[in-house]
Computed example of a mutant assay.
Amino acid sequence: MRWLVNIWKTLNKPTQYLTLGTVSITAFIMGIVFWGGFNTALEATNTEEFCIGCHSMESKPYQELQETVHWSNHSGVRATCPDCHVPHSWGRKVARKIEASHDVWGWVFQTVNTSEKFEDKRLEMASREWKRFERDDSLACKNCHNYDSMKWDTMSKLAQKQMKRAAKKDQSCVDCHKGIAHKLPDMGTARAPELIAEVGLGISSLKVGGSYFASLTKPLFFNENTDVEAGMLNVATKVNVLENKLNRTKISIAGWRKKIGAGRVIYYDFGINMLSAQLTKDAALEEGVISGYEEKEDPLTGLKWQRVEVVIWTENDYLLDEIQPLWDYAKTTYSSSCSVCHTQPEEAHFDANTWPGMFQGMIAFVNMDQDTQALIQKYLQKHSSTFVKADH
């Protein structure tokens, strides 16, 4: 440590021979050298060769890029990796480099070094990039594609309608244009990584007698040991914990069912087609699983409904102790995703039984996984005119 102490003393010792001007000029020159070296190193990481330097990038996303119009087109303009993934302004560029430490971590621990690992992570990585593009209003796209420079008369009527609306709002490009440089992830069967990132994995310790809400669609089981599924618990469904055993929890679900067949579909309330759970036929007929109470006839359809309680088992994960985080996420996602093509209807514009048909007509135009679809549909039903006292 003595040499370190000596250096510190030397640096703190007043100069005897150098003038203030000499010190200032020297510091200025050293600053220029440091800045030049730092900026040169920064720019060296902004080349396509650097980006595809690891096998996982060269073998997948780079090959996919070569199959798109951003690689080869009639104008001969090519978009490289840093054109889209590194901001042009210096401040945002440095921030992006700090964020890229996540990529270095993945490279060191080889999280996407095989095709199978890459596909498993594709949606997570794509979601992260989409969120960054949305945060920056797709500035990387707009560095080349400018609304003010577009020739509307060369577009189809439908494209004109959509693009002019987007230009008026200066809309983020990735709201509509996902999957144009790389293949789209499988959005249909994914487990909603953005939703889980927002609301968490659930409560670590469930209390017997407590009430919780499913943050994902979850499998149901006959008991704490079997792997044979007895049905599915729908997202945002309220359950009461009856018993805990290792990784399984015995729950009760209150609701209504239609007196048709085995009556295996459980709904939120009488006469309202808002799903809470779907049991297998064997589970619905199993003694002790469903307890029936009062019966009522729906005057609109003539169907008989029965108030029931379901006692069944599920896994401990993805259970929240409050519903509001789910509604907040659903509201934000509905507002951002479903306003791409038009102004979305207010939640209370339709009743609970009308919303499913209306919403299913909307989701054909957006990329949305099944869990998020189910959550937003239930959010719209729960906040519909059926439950909101308003005239429509």
Rank of each mutant, 00 (worst) to 15 (best):
M1A: 14
W3N: 06
L4E: 14
T15W: 05
T15G: 00
L18K: 07
F28K: 07
I29R: 10
G36E: 13
G36H: 15
F38K: 06
F38E: 02
F38V: 04
E43C: 14
A44Q: 09
E48W: 09
E48H: 12
K60W: 09
Y62P: 11
L65E: 04
E67C: 02
V69I: 04
H70Q: 14
W71S: 15
S75E: 10
G76H: 04
V77Y: 04
D83E: 06
P87A: 07
S89V: 01
G91M: 05
G91K: 12
E99N: 08
S101L: 10
H102Y: 00
G106N: 06
T111V: 13
E116I: 07
K117S: 02
L123T: 04
E124K: 12
E124S: 03
R132T: 07
S138M: 01
N143D: 03
S156F: 10
S156A: 14
M163D: 13
Q171T: 13
C176Q: 03
H182W: 00
H182F: 08
A192H: 00
E198T: 10
I203P: 01
E229H: 03
N244W: 01
R248N: 11
K250E: 01
K258R: 11
G263C: 03
M274Y: 02
M274D: 01
L275C: 09
L275M: 05
L279H: 08
E286D: 13
E297F: 05
K304H: 04
R307E: 12
T314E: 03
D317K: 15
D321F: 13
E322H: 07
D328I: 07
T332L: 07
S337M: 14
C338I: 05
T343C: 13
T343W: 12
F350L: 09
A352E: 08
N353M: 13
P356G: 06
P356H: 03
G357R: 14
V366T: 10
V366G: 05
A374T: 15
Y379C: 05
L380K: 15
K382G: 01
K382M: 01
S384C: 15
T386K: 14
K389W: 02
H392C: 11
